[in-house]
Design a protein around this nucleic acid. Structure first.
Lengths: 204, 204
DNA sequence: AATTGTGAATTGATTCACAGCT
DNA sequence: AGCTGTGAATCAATTCACAATT
């Protein structure tokens, strides 16, 4: 099974399984069946098992999965066995909110710096807010590969081109637009307005 | 074609097309081909056309789509022809960030109130922050059908049960957990950590 | 000539059904 | 006996190919 053939959705679900596993660990559960874990993750047990087989065999027939071992394996597969540096670009409302959010570190991501066209220090933030011009050098120097993009739609593509040139390989995009990137760069877009719009279709 | 048979992804893409159309309108473009619109939305033209046929025929062969007319049709399909009231629950870092964000109103959503277990007025916010106990009454009184959930994972299910009981039909969930809701309630989850984790798989 | 709309073909994802271990 | 792992079957989404229309 080639890395490239693995459905993106399966990889996505691995993160969800991971979260369920950490909750099990907190509760000192050491073994879990595909049935139970799948239920916690909101999927079918066959799907969970199929997802896992893309990466190997981790269970014991008749028994289930070892919680610790499976969590460790998934974190290796997802490449998050070490703290990953991330930068954030665009310190507007949403950007500064995310800086304050802090939920990333727990999951192995370290927001090391933020950039803005008009940087102004925010006393309550521990993260330095730097001028956009210094960004390429920073990326290079700190070997940053991931970026969170929270700039207005009209500057999103321009900034994207810059960060891709500087060596960014993965972008979490909150700007409400479609980004054009080279094949080797991966983008996950979260469009808050689109999520709400989509919901409004379903209410009657 | 039954409303229920329409792929959720098609409905989701409608919102994206909508955004591209408004940009075209701003630029006074009045006709667009499926090819051009699809490109702007980051999809194939056949997919765009297929998506639209779930709802009817809106184009002119040989010519393309009328930008205004298509935008109007999509907004009707999505049920966003009038301002939709929305409440936000959980005014922590992420919650207050979203309140400040303001990008929702432009898309036809009006965040009318926020609720928290320990409400404290935030001077810079125009939206009232109310006690959680007053929520059911508020939902009923203002006929609110949509909620944005930004509470910690451990209280998410409890709050969900409350708002569903009170009449909420659609939830945009930012809490990192799987919500259990009745069939007629629809949930869109945005898990920021999962999005980042997922990206980290792709960088090597 | 250009472009939509759509059945048919294809590709992809999920679920079934059960063989294989412990 | 219980539960995983997986090929086969099913179901769903996307793309193709082209007829229909302006």
């Amino acid at each position: 099974m080639n890395r490239i053939d693995i459905p993106r959705k399966s990889i996505y679900r691995l993160s969800i399984y991971q979260r369920c596993l950490s909750r099990l660990r907190e509760n000192d559960v050491d073994t879990v069946s595909s049935e139970a874990l799948a239920k916690a993750a909101g999927v079918k047990s066959t799907q969970l098992r199929k997802d896992l087989t893309y990466f190997g065999q981790f269970g014991t027939r008749g028994l289930g999965y070892n919680v610790d071992a499976l969590a460790k394996t998934i974190s290796e597969v997802l490449g998050q066995n070490h703290l990953q540096p991330v930068i954030l670009i665009g310190v507007g409302n949403l950007g500064s909110a995310l800086l304050r959010y802090g939920g990333f570190r727990k999951e192995g991501f370290d927001v090391v710096a933020a950039f803005d066209i008009a940087p102004k220090a925010q006393a309550d933030l521990k993260i330095p807010i730097l001028a956009l011009e210094t960004m390429p050098e920073f990326i290079l120097k700190h070997q940053v590969k991931m970026a969170i993009l929270t700039v207005p739609a009209n500057s999103a593509q321009g900034v994207t081109n810059q960060i891709v040139d500087a060596g960014i390989q993965a972008i979490l995009n909150f700007s409400p637009c479609v980004l054009d990137v080279p094949d080797q760069v991966v983008v996950n877009s979260v469009d808050l307005a689109v999520e709400l719009e989509n919901l409004s279709y379903f209410i009657r």
